[in-house]
Design a protein around this nucleic acid. Structure first.
Lengths: 215, 215
DNA sequence: CGTCGTCTTGATCTTTCTCAACCTGTGTGG
DNA sequence: CCACACAGGTTGAGAAAGATCAAGACGACG
């Protein structure tokens, strides 16, 4: 992979995968409404999806009490269900949180597509990049709730597109309950770092936010 | 990737990467003693390593207070520092926890090696597999300390080779302090599921352990 | 045999979870 | 067009889990 290609992959979007997919995949697109599931945890992993538009959250059953814990957000330009290449069942459920435009191929077609060295490289780069960009480990030893939320907001801000997820999902990503997230946001707001509304969060004072995220 | 190749990749070891590496990489091996670092977080990502023997833990600085949080264990047969393919610096530090036998190649050589479709596939499979096999998210919403420890022990047991890591590292992986891990192990022991010594943990009653991990 | 580092155990304190009530914007049906 | 139900969000008080601090025990190693 050339240094140039590496840079292209690291860029938020359009990344190499997008380019490759655009060029190669049959344009069998499907609109999927908010709330719908793309695939379910434990289901036979038979297809791989490409998310052209919208937003999808990956959730995994927390335990047998039926609750679920979201653990990653996938935005436009992402491949979903890649575990189909190495496993027989999906590891998590993918739920649409913002109306999505998806195209998919069967595992076999994906295998075939990966005969192309360029495609294979693009996918590898994609996996390495998204894997490392995921939400950092969410546990108490990573700091207090306020610090973790501040860090998450910083990561969001640096990504450009604001994540449109509900409080419940955001809290899940951060490993806390919605109430705690709400309180943390309130603290950050009263410190003047952000502005919080029922349905929006805007960063007001970036240095201050960084400061609150720091220690 | 054929169904057969997929199965081979999913197998614990030797996986496709091992086979490929054995065949292709120049056998420039280097012994690295326990405690040494393979690479450091933030360092220029110039090489990729293959861990032939031993055990390595990946740690990431928790915050600016100097503490570090381990977030994954890599055993024999793993590739280390793959972020070199998509980034300019390493995302975490790799520290040897059991005397290791490593061989490494420069980023450029790795790029070149990846010209081989087989190699590329093996690496993709490897990344997808290890990525999904990592320790599950460690946060309170994933259950109590006892449950998380029980789950971790089950995962360990199913992997065959017992992880030889210190309590400190194990606790870090699970997102708790060593004291909490110690107490959780004591609880599991008094429930008869395991036997705990200063330097060993043996599963005694698998069904009981599963039960304690469950809800 | 003594020292050091790791592990364990106990007491206390902080944080977050839980449960409950209340608020607010949205959508529905009369 | 308005009343109403409803889901998602906020806020408060109490409980529980884990972190912290401190002391002691065990094992490795010189």
């Amino acid at each position: 992979m050339s240094s140039e290609a590496r840079k292209a992959c690291a860029a938020p979007c359009p990344c190499a995968v997008t380019v490759e997919v655009r060029r190669r995949w049959p344009s069998l697109e499907r609109h999927t409404p908010r709330g719908a599931h793309v695939y379910l945890e434990g289901e036979a992993a038979s297809r791989v999806w490409y998310l052209r538009r919208g937003c999808v959250v990956l959730v995994r059953a927390a335990s047998d009490d039926g609750r679920e814990a979201p653990h990653a957000v996938r935005r436009a330009g992402s491949l979903l269900g890649l575990e189909a290449l190495v496993r027989d069942t999906y590891l998590d459920s993918a739920r649409v949180t913002a109306d999505a435009l998806l195209c998919s191929v069967s595992r076999e077609a994906m295998d075939e597509w990966l005969q192309e060295p360029m495609a294979l490289r693009a996918v590898l780069a994609h996996v390495l990049t998204t894997g490392s960009a995921d939400v950092p480990r969410a546990c108490r030893s990573e700091g207090t709730a306020v610090e973790r939320v501040a860090r998450w907001l910083l990561a969001e801000a640096s990504q450009g597109a604001p994540t449109r997820v509900t409080r419940r999902v955001a809290a899940g990503l951060l490993g806390m309950v919605p109430e705690t997230l709400s309180r943390a946001l309130a603290r950050l707001a009263e410190a003047g770092a952000i502005e919080v509304g029922r349905s929006h969060v805007v960063v007001r004072d970036l240095p201050r936010l960084r400061e609150l995220a720091g220690g």
